[in-house]
Design a protein around this nucleic acid. Structure first.
Lengths: 334, 334
DNA sequence: TTGAAAGCGGTACCAG
DNA sequence: CTGGTACCGCTTTCAA
């Protein structure tokens, strides 16, 4: 059942059917009704490929993230999908992992699908301090379709970003711990992504501003896997700290598990702060104080902006910084 | 840059370019090389819409789930995407929620995108005991594209399913608790989906087989949200139980939180078993014994089977039942 | 307000 | 092995 069939049955031309389908004003009410009835009766749906061929668009957004099994990414994609759906866009998904090559291939693939725009979720896609050539493929992609980065940051004509203010959040958390008399704040991290770096800088700045030294042995890097991280911490005999600031909730929970093994009481002897306000933070015991990076709001901004750009609006801000919120629970005494 | 340009530049016909692009054997090595060079030099990519128009396929799989922010779904989608990607298929995602209307609309939408197949993840899409008319839209969809249900079950010519053996898992867990002397096993659930029903039936059967009564006041339904569930349990003054079997890890964690408030020790006074083996189960304290429904394997089966069907293979099993695994941790003494 | 016809960029059949 | 050409189904311009 195609447009020709509908035209034949309703006794009009395919041009008219096309106009009816696309809600053109230049059709008499009578004709419209007649055609509509036939369309309903026959259950006709326009062929999306043919339409795509003509319009060079299928109203589809490409979404990339390193790993959708991660709660943070999953929440982001959930919001993106929902918001785009309301604007009539569909989402095609790509989980790229963290290697440059895979990321590059995925971008190429999505682009070859003639997506209307590309959204990349996660701080693995670039930011301050990342080498130019590492992100060249993204700049390249932006020549073919607008690119929106969530929690990454690259400057470019057709590139838009929304970033959590991780620096400030880390600064605040660290300062709060200092105000509570903490002397040795362990910085737990699992990668050197843009956002991890921002957090580390906030942490360092807060220490400096308080006149504290930035100690290398207080920066602890490990995989974001609870048992693995806990065991690695336990293996380091000389690890001494009175508080923990982790760049991921999973790492913070690992610190909690570490405390449990060591018989250290939280928050009395040890304060712990996590990041992302994930379900983990209310599952653990005691429940975790965690920074919420407002992923929902970031996704909202992303969709609004992308849609504006696709509508030809040129007054879209290339970077939006969203403040974080510190959700206080039981692992801190502030 | 289209196929005509490439043909002109390489001095051949578009038919030959098409053959080269599609790896046809009937091209001389010399011609192939010549054309390939031009393609490389010009950075030509075939227009996917035009190709789709001709072949009526874009090698795209539609994936639906109620909510991708849920860890179980996210893991499923992650595996599906990865496996399909290896076969050269892309995934377009739809988060449908749980209402019939939304689910139906999403199916319609995905179908209108001419997806090659539809994969539906979750037990919300139908199974034993669900009314025919509730799943009619899925049977209908299967006329247009093969449908694969993960953890739902509907019989139909073009419908394929993989199901966790939730009944047996629930039976085993309940029996194990009984063997440990538990007399009042609380069944915590949050919905009446197919899988929840299977679990409940396994629970009931184990009780009956052990000569225990199936008590209505030992079935507790609440939203799958840790604090909400905990508070609801606390609000019921006469709730008495010595063990908990929850259909979701979140609910099991809620039970742990309940025990914490009540000062009940786990597992000494109370045994708790969750479901899905999610990150929650290792985040909580003590760590949760949980049923792993092998989502990874189910997704693997789904992809293998779908690909077979799409290749015209007709000997594909319409239903595969995957055994679960009980992952023993600290909230039980078995 | 309507229709005829020219694309859009491929695929695949049929000749040669 | 290669080229010519008829589709695929829709959008849009141009005339009427």
């Amino acid at each position: 059942m195609n447009i020709y069939d509908i035209a034949r049955i309703s006794g009009v031309s395919i041009a008219t059917v096309s106009r009816v389908v696309n809600g053109s004003q230049k059709v008499s009410e009578k004709t419209r009704q007649k055609v509509m009835d036939v369309i309903k009766a026959e259950g006709y749906t326009p062929n999306i490929f043919a339409r795509g061929l003509g319009l060079d668009s299928m109203k589809t957004i490409g979404i990339m993230c390193p790993n959708i099994a991660d709660n943070y990414m999953a929440r982001a994609i959930s919001h993106l999908e929902q918001n785009f759906h309301e604007y009539g866009y569909d989402c095609i998904l790509g989980c790229s992992g963290h290697t440059r090559e895979a990321k590059e291939n995925y971008v190429k693939l999505l682009l070859s699908k003639r997506i209307d725009a590309l959204v990349m979720v996660g701080s693995t896609y670039g930011g301050n301090g990342v080498e130019e050539k590492e992100t060249a493929y993204i700049k390249n992609a932006s020549k073919q379709a607008p690119v929106f980065l969530i929690n990454s940051w690259i400057e470019g004509e057709n590139i838009y970003c929304s970033n959590a203010d991780d620096f400030s959040a880390a600064y605040e958390v660290t300062s709060a711990l200092i105000r509570r008399g903490k002397k040795r704040i362990l910085f737990l991290y699992d990668s050197e992504t843009f956002s991890a770096k921002q957090k580390m800088e906030g942490y360092e700045r807060a220490l400096s501003d308080a006149g504290y030294p930035v100690l290398g042995d207080l920066k602890f890097r490990t995989k974001n896997e609870i048992h693995h991280a806990r065991d690695l911490m336990l293996a380091y005999k000389n690890l001494e700290f009175d508080s923990v600031f982790a760049v991921e909730d999973g790492l913070a929970v690992a610190a909690l598990k570490y405390a449990k093994v060591k018989g250290i009481s939280v928050p009395e002897e040890l304060s712990v702060v996590g990041y992302n306000n994930s379900p983990l933070s209310v599952s653990c015991e005691p429940e975790l104080t965690s920074v919420d990076s407002r992923i929902e709001q970031q996704c909202y901004i992303a969709v609004e902006n992308i849609v504006k750009v696709l509508e030809g609006n040129t007054e879209v801000s290339h970077r939006t910084i969203v403040p974080c919120e510190i959700v206080k629970r039981c692992t801190t005494d502030f």
